[in-house]
Write a protein that binds this DNA or RNA. Sequence first.
DNA 1: CGCCGTGTTGACTATTCTCAACCCAGGTGG
DNA 2: CCACCTGGGTTGAGAATAGTCAACACGGCG
Lengths: 256, 256
Amino acid sequence: MTNPLLRKLSNFVRLSEDQQQALETLTSRPKSYAGQSDIVCEGDPTSGVYLILDGWAYRYKVGDDGRRQIMSYFVPGDICDQRIFVLNRMDHNIGTLTQASIAKVSKEAIIDLTDRHPQIARAFWWSTLIDEAVAREWLMNTGRRNAVQRVGHLMCEMFVRLRAIGLVDGQSFQFPLTQIQLADTLGLSTVHLNRSLKVLRRRGLIEWARGPLTILELDKLASASMFNSSYLHLEGEVAPVSGGLTEPAARNAAVT
Amino acid sequence: MTNPLLRKLSNFVRLSEDQQQALETLTSRPKSYAGQSDIVCEGDPTSGVYLILDGWAYRYKVGDDGRRQIMSYFVPGDICDQRIFVLNRMDHNIGTLTQASIAKVSKEAIIDLTDRHPQIARAFWWSTLIDEAVAREWLMNTGRRNAVQRVGHLMCEMFVRLRAIGLVDGQSFQFPLTQIQLADTLGLSTVHLNRSLKVLRRRGLIEWARGPLTILELDKLASASMFNSSYLHLEGEVAPVSGGLTEPAARNAAVT
DNA sequence: CGCCGTGTTGACTATTCTCAACCCAGGTGG
DNA sequence: CCACCTGGGTTGAGAATAGTCAACACGGCG
């Protein structure tokens, strides 16, 4: 299974050949985007759902005072904007961080597909719920953790998410963010973010200088940042639709 | 239409008699809960979705260090825990703030209903998307606004949400929170929250002393807090499933 | 070569937190 | 009926955290 979308949705439901086929055709015509470019902007009419097949993208919003808040990162397999169904116009921006391959699917195609396949509808729904869980964890992050913990927490999250889709090489992965973007994600000033990075480096927890991020001590970084991967629901913790409840796998265990 | 759930979902889709009937039966056996009590706790096996028919409830999480983050408030019409489909066990707590009337619906009933009625499935999906939008706005709140703005923003949000379900009387509504709970919502200490309330009172923007909250100057409070109600999608801004796009109503206008 | 965006550092300021004291209202037990 | 207790709410003082402003380093690129 090389298709990132299939891979992701298969975490939640077992898809029939038929359904897999239907999803394959959705992603059959990806478009390539340059890095650091906007895909859709606030105020644009909503026109489709974006499926990330390769590269990183992100969602952000600019406040009345010009301050920016980055609200999520998208990596291969992520569904980029399901909110099309609610909004007439975008209330936020979506841009790429790296060169990216993205398939666009029309509203009508989604509605048609989900009407015919309740399983797929439920898989999309699940995917939305996980996005929501991530958003809530980020809320916990900015609300209840200090600067160093926030940075560490985000790094652990991306490590686990990327590992689940095979993009972690040993202890390292591509982390294509500027410090400015990181600061806008975590609700920090760039200066303070820079100092927090310095702390993590000095403690020997990470190595990072614009490019690959190496997490030298994942366990230590995770516990120092109060990171627990369970909210990502990536480790076979999915509730079966029918049948007995299975014991969740190691809910409070270390991330490795 | 007196059923709060029907009222809410009707914001998103036009429901047939048949579908309305199906939803009515879901909420036919509400249970009454005392105020300030926990409905479900972290670690409990997930067993059903909760539909709030009357009263306030809230979702919160307690971090490893004992600090609490309140992640959402539920008012009549809200669907309390859709995450049942993802988790085997709760990763957060849900409790009541006031005496509340809540209907519990089993996982199987939801699956059956959504399999038979794609319209209802989509309405539930919409509802989770709005919850997500609210979570993201709260992220913006804790990440990019100062203490006074955070307080004002939450008050504006609850004003608009409660007005949409007819629970605002003039400029006042019940706001059954302690300062401790407010602080845990906004990522502030109780002391600093208290001082921020004092600022809002002194500026003549609100009146509140444990009970009804009166927003004396909604426009001023909203603009000072950078509040824009569009993320709540309550004002006829819903995108039609088919047909031409309608102009969104006054996206950046004042909240009144 | 010079410009520009990013990263780094220092010095100072502002915001927010912590600790501690005290007030007040409601409830309980004598 | 009153003394006491308890859980909010309020205030002050000092400490910790984070932000702002400003300078400079460095590399890519026209």
